[in-house]
Amino acid sequence: MFPGGRKRSRESDKACLRREIKEELPKLKLGRISLWKEVTARNKRSGRKMSDAIFIAKGAKGRLEIGDKKEIDRAAWHKPRGLRLTPTSRYIRDRLFPRKRR
């Protein structure tokens, strides 16, 4: 799942991402962050506009220790296949990790 936070006023997208990761997983340290893609769409059910900035981190180290157990109940590393994903997560996975052709 994605962090559920919101940008604070005058906070850049990258600063927001780093702050959210630090709040949710305080022992995790991210390497260089770069914008991969911005996605804007309208929710088919509610009609609400959605906007997401998707970033890639060059490396991550540290433990997946949870910062606020009221927000996150667990954290684990997984391979990109074999997980139940939301449509947005599936889109990202399939673009970043395309299936290998045999």
Rank of each mutant, 00 (worst) to 15 (best):
E65Q: 13
S89P: 01
F2S: 12
L28S: 03
R95D: 12
I66E: 11
G4Y: 02
K49S: 11
I72G: 03
G31R: 13
E23G: 05
L30C: 02
R81M: 02
A53T: 08
D68E: 11
R95G: 08
W77N: 06
R10I: 10
F55A: 01
R95C: 08
P87N: 02
F2L: 15
V39S: 08
R81V: 01
C16W: 09
G82P: 12
F2E: 11
N43W: 12
L30G: 05
R45W: 14
D68P: 01
R6M: 10
A60Q: 10
E24Q: 11
G5H: 04
R42C: 07
K79W: 07
L96I: 13
L25K: 04
R74G: 08
K44W: 09
P26M: 05
R93S: 00
R8D: 11
A57S: 14
K61H: 14
L35W: 07
K100L: 04
V39C: 13
L35I: 10
T40P: 05
D73G: 01
L30D: 03
D13Q: 12
A75Y: 00
E23P: 05
I72S: 06
D13W: 14
R99E: 15
S9H: 11
L83E: 03
I21R: 01
E38N: 11
R101D: 04
I72D: 03
S46Y: 09
